[in-house]
Design a protein around this nucleic acid. Structure first.
Lengths: 262, 262
DNA sequence: GCAAAAGTGTTGACTGTACACCCATGT
DNA sequence: ACATGGGTGTACAGTCAACACTTTTGC
């Protein structure tokens, strides 16, 4: 990567005087969310190096010279956890407060991932262990201690996911290729931590154009009962009308404000 | 800024080998939106230097060593356009595709700003001119030619603003300190490019807790008519229920998908 | 038959929209 | 007086939550 700069590039490098602007490192971090044994969870890796050794952190790392940001996020996720790479991934936010990394100035572009349950995430190169933690435990005292500002990133990711389930069909990103409406409903119930009325949920989903596509087959429920029809993702990107969270008036709105207000 | 690095920092610098990772420059760009003579508009500056000389661009520039990202956005906005600095500013998205700047690798953290009408934005240091352009013209052929990937950033900012007006009280960010409900309604009409029913709009706003606070005074409408009551911003950060755009079903949803889908 | 889960029908409360109408001011 | 825009009342239509009820399976 040490070629002769063009005149344009040289001009840029003059403006970008490395004495005035010592390099800022650009990293990506991924908050991969999933429903793990019925609980809304986030993938974390245990750090093997200082600083924050033996703390838990989001998988992530440096962006390579000619690599797109999202490609970097996908690569880090694969390297550190072996998660398959066709999952939904979207940019969440960038975090660049001076001092967020004690080793030097970094700006981290965080990504939000959503995937069906992953059986065994493997700890990769720089990650000692990798496992899913229920998001309810991450904020509280009895959960894992998070490195850097990753607790903030996780909180933002969780709230973004909760909100996106309202007006996009992304709940299907947590489902397998084929799923029943009960599967889909359990996604909503786990993410929002509420109970939903199955008959009304069914009607809402089916009346929303492009949310799900019916398949011919049926699946047997685990504990016995009538077989349920199977569906796959539809082609809609937005829900009309939205699937609003129940009882979102007044008091609950406190938690949401973090992500929304900036 | 040339001090002796600590052991931790040195370790970081070893990991962050500048040969493997040639510096990525971090910049901020600001899409400042406002209602200018009744039209939903974005602030652009005409570039005085190559590349993209005499093209129009968003105000922005390099992040300084010990500067928070949002502070950098606010500083660049003040330097290049003289816009007052108490306006609403929130992070929009980061753009880092290799090749987006022909001079070298950059990652730009874009911010979305909302402000009341600004009388005379002044072109600052590196900006030849600064002016507001109606967003409807920016995308089309007869509008300004935009530098870099700023057309994408503007499109994302516009869609984010349209969407935020639905579920937050941010329309008030476009209003002066004191405003009438007709002022507020004209904000919605300009941003969404629709006509709203004044009586129903009034009821919706007043029934939404914390959206606006009534003041004692009244203001005379410009062309004669009954004086209107004045209001100021309320303390809500989210609207319950939301102010949904009329006729948002099916066909119109095409444009929205850009920002939402990633 | 009974338990369990899928799926259907019905009702009453609530919300959004359209529009008729009244009120207060300038000219 | 009348034009202009602010503000109120009302009635209809659509949506949503609650829950009773039917269907199809395993045991």
């Amino acid at each position: 990567m040490s070629r002769v700069p063009s005149a344009e590039e040289q001009k840029f490098l003059d403006e970008y005087d490395p004495d005035r602007y010592p390099s800022i490192a650009v990293t990506v971090d991924v908050a991969l969310l999933t429903i793990c044994s019925g609980r809304f969870s986030v993938l974390l890796v245990e750090r093997g190096n200082h600083p924050y050794k033996s703390y838990w952190a989001l998988p992530g790392g440096f962006v390579e010279p000619d690599e797109d940001l999202q490609a970097a996020a996908r690569r880090e996720l694969a390297e550190e956890t072996g998660v398959r790479d066709d999952i939904h991934l979207e940019q969440l936010c960038s975090y660049g407060t001076p001092g967020r990394d004690p080793r030097g100035r970094t700006v981290s572009v965080a990504y939000l991932g959503m995937s069906p349950e992953v059986s065994n995430p493997v700890g990769g190169s720089d990650a000692a262990h990798a496992r899913f933690w229920p998001v309810a435990e991450v904020g509280s005292g009895d959960g894992p201690q998070l490195a850097f500002d990753h607790d903030v990133i996780v909180a933002d990711a969780v709230e973004r996911a909760r909100s996106k389930l309202e007006y996009t069909p992304l709940a299907t990103a947590f489902c397998e290729e084929q799923f029943t409406l009960a599967d889909l409903r359990r996604i909503y119930e786990a993410v929002w931590d509420v109970q939903l009325d199955a008959p009304n949920f069914r009607r809402k989903v089916l009346s929303t154009h492009g949310f799900v596509e019916p398949l011919g087959d049926t699946a047997l429920p685990p504990g016995g009962g009538r077989p349920a029809r199977l569906y796959r993702r539809g082609d809609a990107r937005l829900l009309h009308p939205a699937m609003l969270r129940p009882g979102a008036s007044a008091e609950e709105s406190l938690a949401e404000q973090r992500v929304v207000q900036e």
